[in-house]
Design a protein around this nucleic acid. Sequence first.
DNA 1: TTACTATTGGCATCTGGTATTAATATGTGA
DNA 2: TCACATATTAATACCAGATGCCAATAGTAA
Lengths: 193, 193
Amino acid sequence: MSEFRMSKETRQQRLRQQLEADPFLTDEELARLFKVSIQTIRLDRLELGLPELRERTKQVAAKVYAQVRSLSGGEVYGDLIDVQLGRSGLSILDTDENMGFARTKIVRGHHIFAQANSLAVAIIDAPTALTGSAEIRFLRPVKVGERIVAKAQVIESVKNRFRVKVESRIDQEEIFHGDFVVFAMEDGQWAGD
Amino acid sequence: MSEFRMSKETRQQRLRQQLEADPFLTDEELARLFKVSIQTIRLDRLELGLPELRERTKQVAAKVYAQVRSLSGGEVYGDLIDVQLGRSGLSILDTDENMGFARTKIVRGHHIFAQANSLAVAIIDAPTALTGSAEIRFLRPVKVGERIVAKAQVIESVKNRFRVKVESRIDQEEIFHGDFVVFAMEDGQWAGD
DNA sequence: TTACTATTGGCATCTGGTATTAATATGTGA
DNA sequence: TCACATATTAATACCAGATGCCAATAGTAA
């Protein structure tokens, strides 16, 4: 019979945690969970500034969606500033929120790689070019919001095999470099594979 | 005045594509887009078996959410299937149209890298982990639509420095492998940088 | 008791739909 | 050209999961 009555404060804290753990709970379910009325839950959400179920769902969905899309963009990841086909190229990437880890705001390595890789491929003077291998190094973490400038240069080419060096900088400071081996190919070379 | 009237069939096809590209469109917006009434859109969705906005949103959200939550949500590129923190992990990436070059339908290397890299980082048992360097090799081109299974294994760890080997396969055939050096870090280690 | 906060209830309203039925267009074959 | 089929639009009732607002009640400390 002794129905414990949680203090408003602790209830609200737990509410926060609960929704963090599972954002797909309706107010009704939450009300049952905390043994209070639906209205109380709504008041709590209001006071805490927590959005409703649909909004939460949308936020979860949109977050990932943006992430995947950002990697899927055009043929070059970043903005191509200058290209001398077969020789060198330059691209800029403005990093943003959804390229980074939510907690640390540090840009995930594969975005930095994507910029370098797509640039390395873009400067090859051939209908199609594919990365064969690469040796890369991340020199310091990049924070969300920083602008990365990548410079690529062909340093050797033997037949259809190119070695491309890419250096990425933020304000002159080198934050990444990579040696890429890229293969140029005739159209349809791999088509019947 | 010549208002073109798309055939029902082509409209429905485009509707499908449109929702694939952006699942967050209401019937109203779709109606405007296709210049038909809202009812027509609803009939189309019914015939095509396409769920309503909220359902679509939920599905996108749930998919992400299903991925192991050991990291904060959708931090991994691909679907995390299994993780033994500090030891090994497995992820699947279903490649699609917009991961590839439009002309050749070959998946851009950085998507393959992104899967491997984020997996390598995910299996480290630390609040934060960052890629320091990597040596990678693309063994054959991947065509759009193929399913890549990446397997990662920690093969050495000295203090906060881990060497992780990742092998990516399509139907048992190895298509990529990489040696990553990943650093684990305490919370806030780079914060004041 | 009084005063105040916390909780609950009731009601109108909103969005983005489903489900159903009916009224119009529009096109096509005979 | 008429008749029928198919496609489109319209109208209405209903639902979930909310918001916003106001009034009623419970609990609690001075």
